[in-house]
């Protein structure tokens, strides 16, 4: 188990291969270096923005890849462990395999792309923090587990396949798109923000009320959606005298 919190363009910038290999990490309580786990070749760019990191091999047990990065790119030709792109502010991460939980936690900007599946807590907040994901985009081409976009304030999360439970719980902004089916608990305790579900929701939240049917285009899909507002059980702010609700757009059954 390697905590690779130094695997970011910001840390690599301005360093040569040997210096990068010497960057710190942790394995349990043991202080280790990147070089203990990886063969490093090539040099970092001058700044983070012109540093591209490519990791070949399996990172199923490497945490914090690209966490807190501000610019540049990270590509992992395989799986990645927890906290991929956590707290990231800019740049781009591409995981070609699957991601574990807590990816994109409290992300502020940039782009996180995963070709496989993500586990739980995609784009969520850290425990106790009411300031979740603020910006940027997370795209998971596979499916995702529970707690997507909890306490989300901004940015976009797209799950191209199915999701389990708890989408945008407690959210106060941002957009979540689920292209497949969801088991349930979509938008619970949600204050504001948007959700799109292109598949089915097995169990609807009772606090959502259908208000109309709209034509919308989302992430390249044009469709008719049933428009729900909610969570009616939750508090909601007012803007210009109007109560602002969260919106759920559920693809209408043809």
């Amino acid at each position: 188990m390697f905590e690779g919190y130094s695997i970011t363009p910001d840390a690599f910038a301005g360093k040569n291969a040997a210096q990068i290999a010497a960057l710190p990490g942790h394995e349990g309580k043991i202080h280790v270096t990147i070089g203990d786990f990886f063969e490093v070749s090539g040099n970092g760019g001058e700044t983070a923005a012109d540093t591209d990191i490519v990791i070949t091999g399996d990172c199923t047990r490497v945490k914090y890849i690209g966490a807190r990065m501000t610019a540049g790119t990270v590509t992992v030709n395989g799986n990645a462990d927890m906290y991929v792109g956590g707290w990231m502010k800019g740049g781009k991460i591409h995981i070609k395999g699957n991601m574990d939980s807590f990816c994109g936690i409290q992300m502020e900007g940039g782009e996180l792309l995963c070709d496989g599946d993500a586990k739980n807590h995609v784009g969520c907040a850290y425990r106790g923090d009411w300031r979740g994901m603020k910006g940027g985009t997370i795209r998971v081409k596979g499916s995702a587990g529970n707690d997507i976009g909890t306490f989300m304030l901004g940015g976009t999360i797209i799950i191209e396949k199915d999701a389990f439970i708890h989408v945008s719980t407690h959210a106060e902004g941002g957009t979540v798109v689920i292209k497949g089916d969801v088991e349930g608990r979509v938008g619970g305790q949600m204050v504001k923000g948007d959700m799109y579900v292109l598949g089915k929701i097995k169990f609807m939240m009772p606090g959502y009320k259908k208000v109309d049917t709209v034509e919308k285009e989302i992430d390249g899909v044009k469709a008719t959606f049933d428009h729900y507002i909610g969570d009616l059980g939750e508090r909601h702010p007012k803007s210009k005298g109007q109560v602002v609700y969260a919106n759920l757009y559920l693809k209408a059954v043809a």
């Binding site: 349930g184 169990f203 009616l232």
Partner: peptide, 12 residues
Amino acid sequence: YELFDAFRTVLK
């Protein structure tokens, strides 16, 4: 969770 939400929605 759904039942709690229903309680809250009714309460509101």
